[in-house]
Amino acid sequence: MARESFAIGSVRIRAGSTRNLELPITRLVTGSDVSLPVRVVHGREDGPTVWLSAAIHGDEVVGVEVIRQVLAGLDPKSFRGTLVAVPVVNVLGFMAGDRYLPDRRDLNRSFPGSARGSLASRIAHLFMTEVVAKCDVGLDLHTGSDRRSNLPQVRADLDDALTLELAQAFGAPVMLHAGIRDGSLRHAAREQGAKVLLYEAGECLRFDAWAIDAGVIGVRRVLAALEMTEPVNEPAPPPSIESRASGWVRARRTGILHLDATLGQHVTEGERLGALHDSFGKTLRLVHANRTGIVIGRTEQPLVNSGDALVHVADVTTPVD
């Protein structure tokens, strides 16, 4: 018996096929329509339904490329289950190279949204009703913000057995047990029963190849762990370092930052991470680690004010060899 077709928007996708479609969002003042671009890979055989999303923040472009590469390697005739890919959720922010929507709202603080709310709320509601409500698992792809770069990492509810299993399968260098923020996609999706992994890597408005590569192989490993594809033909990654807490080292003076700490570096509390100088090179203040752990994020901005976040250090739960 043939598998049922998959309904989304106003279309149905037959089993063993791929379909591109657009979900209407709004109309610009010019009269042009703005839509949410979606690709559905509806496998010939039964399996889970998974979504991939990126660019909820319009300047976070790494995930867009991750999704493009993942989709290029999928064959719906041998695929099990259904994949709903939304490479650009914040379409208007993406076109402008802006993190936010035109009304300056953060889309990732607007879920689950409302059909009659603000533009952000309407996009969130559309995504929840047409994508999340149909899926069992979601992978939401992000990068660092505000001129920061992030080590490839998965943020998720590691106390949930299946979520932990999928985070381990992803194989990022670090998996962080991250709290849920009200209004976030992860919070709203979890309320509907979906398991969600949030992938962070790289810097906004850049195609960092290392962040893209880690994201592509990680997503492929998760699809394989869900038995939607065959196992990935790559060496198994080292076990992810598990972290239950993290914090930022902040600037204690205003100055020009010379940062020595690198992403993935293991540091001990009190270790020197860099220094703040004036424009003539005089040292104003040294920067030291405020905890022992691994560097999972750093600022790429050399001009900093007192109180600015400089280095993100995650505590290490899993012993490091």
Rank of each mutant, 00 (worst) to 15 (best):
F111N: 10
A211I: 05
P76Q: 03
P24F: 04
V267N: 10
A289E: 15
Y100L: 12
L71P: 01
R250S: 14
D46M: 07
S5M: 14
L74H: 00
L276F: 13
E203V: 05
V267S: 15
L185Q: 09
I217F: 07
L52A: 14
G183V: 12
G193H: 13
V320C: 11
R80F: 05
D308Y: 10
L107V: 02
I241M: 07
L257C: 06
T26K: 06
P152H: 05
V131K: 04
G307P: 00
P87D: 12
I294N: 09
N150L: 11
G274H: 05
F170N: 00
L185W: 00
A156C: 11
R155D: 06
L226P: 02
L284Q: 04
G113H: 03
A188C: 11
F94V: 12
L176A: 02
A169Y: 04
L74Q: 01
A55I: 02
G193V: 14
A115T: 05
L185K: 09
V196Q: 00
S306Q: 14
V311D: 10
R291V: 09
R104W: 13
T262W: 09
H42F: 05
G117T: 00
N233R: 14
A189C: 09
S35P: 01
I13A: 09
D140Y: 06
A236K: 15
L21S: 06
Y199M: 02
A167P: 00
L36H: 06
I294D: 10
S78Y: 03
V316P: 03
V267D: 14
T30K: 03
T318C: 12
S184K: 02
G293D: 11
A7Y: 01
L176P: 00
D278I: 12
R155P: 00
I67C: 09
H125E: 11
L284A: 06
E130D: 13
F94S: 12
L119K: 02
E234K: 11
G63I: 06
R206L: 15
A314D: 00
R104D: 14
A236M: 10
S10L: 13
L197H: 03
K282P: 07
A133S: 12
L263H: 09
R44N: 08
R3H: 11
L276W: 11
I8R: 08
L273R: 01
L185G: 00
L71K: 03
V232D: 08
D182A: 14
A133I: 10
T283M: 15
T254R: 15
A96E: 09
P231K: 07
Q265F: 12
L176S: 06
A236Y: 08
R155V: 01
R80S: 14
P76Y: 08
T254E: 14
G274E: 08
G73Q: 14
K77M: 07
L276I: 15
V84T: 05
I294R: 13
E271A: 14
V219Q: 10
G179D: 11
R155A: 02
R285Q: 15
V61Y: 01
V91E: 05
S110Q: 07
G247F: 14
S246I: 03
R27W: 04
T49Y: 01
L119G: 00
S17P: 02
T18A: 11
T318D: 13
L21R: 03
V29Q: 02
L286T: 11
L36T: 08
L197V: 02
W210M: 06
I180D: 15
P302A: 06
A275M: 13
E165F: 02
S118H: 08
L28G: 06
S35W: 02
A194G: 02
G47D: 13
D160Y: 07
W51T: 00
V154G: 06
